[in-house]
Measured scan of single mutants.
Amino acid sequence: MIINNLKLIREKKKISQSELAALLEVSRQTINGIEKNKYNASLQLALKIAYYLNTPLEDIFQWQ
């Protein structure tokens, strides 16, 4: 199981879903879906999320 901390980290950094989506060149709905565990981010997208949030990938998506 993967624990998804994207919403928590994004909100801590005061970045909206729309802002993050624009940086990543995806839709806001994609970010929303990832945060609600409706969609799994591809490895490429997960790495981009970590880069733009300046946060280690394993802090955003944790295996349990």
Rank of each mutant, 00 (worst) to 15 (best):
Y51Q: 09
N37D: 07
Q44E: 15
Q62T: 10
A50M: 03
I34Y: 02
S27A: 04
K14G: 15
A50N: 02
I31N: 00
E58S: 13
K38Q: 14
K13G: 04
E25F: 10
N40S: 14
E35A: 04
K48I: 03
I15G: 02
N32D: 15
I9H: 07
I9T: 04
Y51C: 13
L8P: 09
N37M: 09
A50E: 04
Q44I: 10
L43V: 11
L57R: 03
Y52M: 10
N4V: 06
L24S: 05
A46C: 15
I3C: 14
I34P: 01
Y51E: 10
S16Y: 04
Y39Q: 13
Q64I: 06
A46Q: 11
R10H: 03
N54T: 08
R28G: 06
Q17H: 03
W63P: 06
L47P: 00
R10C: 09
I49V: 05
I60T: 04
A22K: 13
K14M: 10
S27P: 15
W63T: 07
Y51V: 08
S16E: 04
Y51F: 14
N4K: 03
E35N: 03
R28W: 14
K14P: 02
S16F: 06
P56A: 07
N37C: 13
K36A: 14
L6E: 00
Q44S: 13
I2W: 13
E19V: 08
K12V: 08
E35G: 01
E35V: 02
I31C: 03
L23C: 13
A22L: 12
K13W: 06
A41T: 12
N40T: 15
A21P: 00
I49S: 00
R28H: 11
Y51P: 00
N5H: 08
Y39S: 08
G33K: 13
W63D: 05
Y52T: 11
S27R: 08
N4C: 08
K36D: 13
T30E: 08
L6H: 00
Y52N: 05
G33L: 15
G33F: 11
Q44T: 13
L6F: 01
V26I: 10
S16N: 05
V26Y: 03
E11Y: 06
P56W: 06
K36V: 10
I49F: 04
I34T: 03
I15P: 01
I15A: 02
K14S: 09
F61N: 01
L45K: 00
Q29S: 14
A46W: 12
